[in-house]
Design a protein around this nucleic acid. Structure first.
Lengths: 149, 149
DNA sequence: CGGATATCAGTGTAACTGAAATAA
DNA sequence: CTTATTTCAGTTGCACTGATATCC
């Protein structure tokens, strides 16, 4: 069986071993796993990232949340509309600065975050399943070096 | 200097070392380099992939090109509209099957592809610059193993 | 008939741009 | 006056869905 190992995604042969291509394919697989896992909870990446930075560093203005989470101010607005509608965060005017809203994680939001943390853990395992344990650490180290430019 | 190495993109601390996050950040950096390099030539990823499979495996129907390049039939139509307008490919009805177009790479298309191949080479180098040469091979091998599931 | 083909219209996610109103 | 904040509207690249007319 498996006489030849076929790549998971079709593409030009000249791209087969190229880092740009491999990264895009690997990230696509990762994104698919995330979309499935988070999607089952009705959540997208932006939602999780906002909940996480609220949990880690406390209430903040929307602009500050965007900086913490690496999300554009514009997209923060839309994501918070969603999160607020679900009762996962609350928005209140900042008494010290009338331009700002103070965004706070609710108890329901913290519960949702805990569940999503579990989903995320499971996805890491599934993503790295094709690698041996030492290879997983190698990959993480190499990607970190590649990214922390 | 550089007492602490700051991540290239902000994000929740709990995501910092996670494979899904690192892959998404690394792929984002790769995509940015590609968008810059290809964008300067007015080309997107789909265009390059179609030109490449035409060069590698010869003229074909649009559906077949989609299969070769890993691009949805629907997106093949739009990308070929572009490529045809630039004179990089030609579309002609297939005499043996009236449902099909035979798409052929033009001389201009082949010239454009050669230039893009050079751009792509340069991008690989730039992308992997933060790694030592042996680490680059390790990363490629690990990503290939992760992707060829 | 069952399938394949080309095309069009639309959706979704992540990321970004520009402009406007408001307030520090 | 300049800067920061929130919000809205729009765009891009990649990927996918569904429908339709046509043809094998």
């Amino acid at each position: 069986m498996d006489a030849d190992h076929q790549p998971s995604a079709a593409g030009p042969q000249r791209l087969a071993g190229r880092p740009t291509w491999l990264l895009s394919r690997a990230a696509a697989r990762s994104a698919r796993l995330l979309a499935d896992g988070f999607g089952a909870a009705g959540v997208r990446g932006y939602d999780y990232r906002l909940l996480a930075v609220l949990d880690e560093r406390g209430p903040a203005s929307q602009a500050e949340l965007g900086r913490r989470a690496g999300i554009d101010r514009s997209d923060v607005v839309a994501a918070l509309n969603d999160l607020e509608a679900r009762g996962h965060v609350s928005r209140a005017p900042d008494p010290t600065d009338a331009r700002r809203n103070v965004v706070t994680l609710t108890a329901a939001g913290r519960r949702a975050l805990t569940a999503l943390d579990g989903v995320l853990d499971a996805i890491q395992v599934e993503l790295l399943a094709p690698l041996e344990p030492p290879e997983r650490d190698q990959l993480i180290a190499l990607l970190a070096k590649l990214v922390n430019v």
